[in-house]
Simulated assay, not measured.
Amino acid sequence: MTPSEKRFALIAAGVLVVASVTGYVGTRVALRYGPTLDTYGNEVGGSFRLMDATTGTMTDQTFRGRWMMVLFGATHCADDACTPALTNMSAALDKTDPGKRKAVIIFVSLDPDRDDAERLRLYGQSISPRVVAGTAAPGPLADLAKEYHTTVEKLPDPEWTYAMRMSPRFVVMDPNARYVGTVDANLSADAMTDALKKLMNPAQ
């Protein structure tokens, strides 16, 4: 490699490092001091801004045009309730959206101290490609939980020291980000399928 090629390579590497650091810092600042949530006039649910499983940011606008099934919990979930709930919802969506293009599961971790981007990526990947996991700083998370009518609740756990309680229901938002109802997170996959058919196809 010639001296000029080495110099170019070093400059290029420096630019990449600066861009990565700037993006990371920008993401952290945006999550901590993000915009005020907007309910869009919904009784339940509305806008959100989260750090997703690829260390970027995602908002409700990212999923406009798709149905969103929103569940709050954590990878350290009380009573190990989150994994079966997400698995059953994924199975239900496979029946109501076999093309896998119309609906997505938004899993909001209430445990940002332990659920970093890589952990969330692996957790979602272990369940279904439909599961998109994200989190935020504690303050914005509390506001978001309130917007979606759930709570941030930490429970003692003998194995993990503490675990986060899963929200009792999936909040279902239509492709225009309008609230249409909820699905009990403890239902079986078949029962979730029946509930989704009524919410997503009310005329049928």
Rank of each mutant, 00 (worst) to 15 (best):
L110K: 04
D111R: 03
D111E: 14
D113M: 04
R114Q: 04
R114F: 12
D115N: 04
D115G: 01
D115K: 06
D116H: 07
D116P: 00
D116M: 00
A117S: 15
E118Q: 10
E118S: 10
E118W: 11
R119K: 10
R119H: 13
R119S: 06
L120N: 03
L120W: 07
L120K: 02
R121E: 11
L122E: 02
L122S: 09
L122V: 12
L122D: 15
Y123C: 06
Y123D: 07
G124K: 01
G124N: 04
G124I: 04
G124S: 09
S126W: 10
S126G: 10
I127L: 15
I127Q: 09
S128Y: 10
S128E: 08
S128P: 00
P129R: 00
R130P: 03
R130D: 00
V131S: 08
V131H: 07
V132H: 14
V132L: 13
V132Y: 15
V132N: 08
A133P: 01
A133D: 07
G134P: 01
G134R: 03
T135G: 03
T135S: 13
A136E: 11
A136D: 15
A137Y: 13
A137G: 00
P138K: 08
G139M: 11
P140E: 07
P140F: 14
P140Q: 12
P140D: 08
P140M: 04
L141Q: 02
D143C: 00
D143M: 09
D143R: 15
L144M: 15
L144R: 01
L144N: 01
A145P: 02
K146C: 00
E147D: 04
E147M: 15
Y148W: 14
H149W: 13
H149Y: 14
H149N: 12
T150M: 13
T151H: 14
T151F: 14
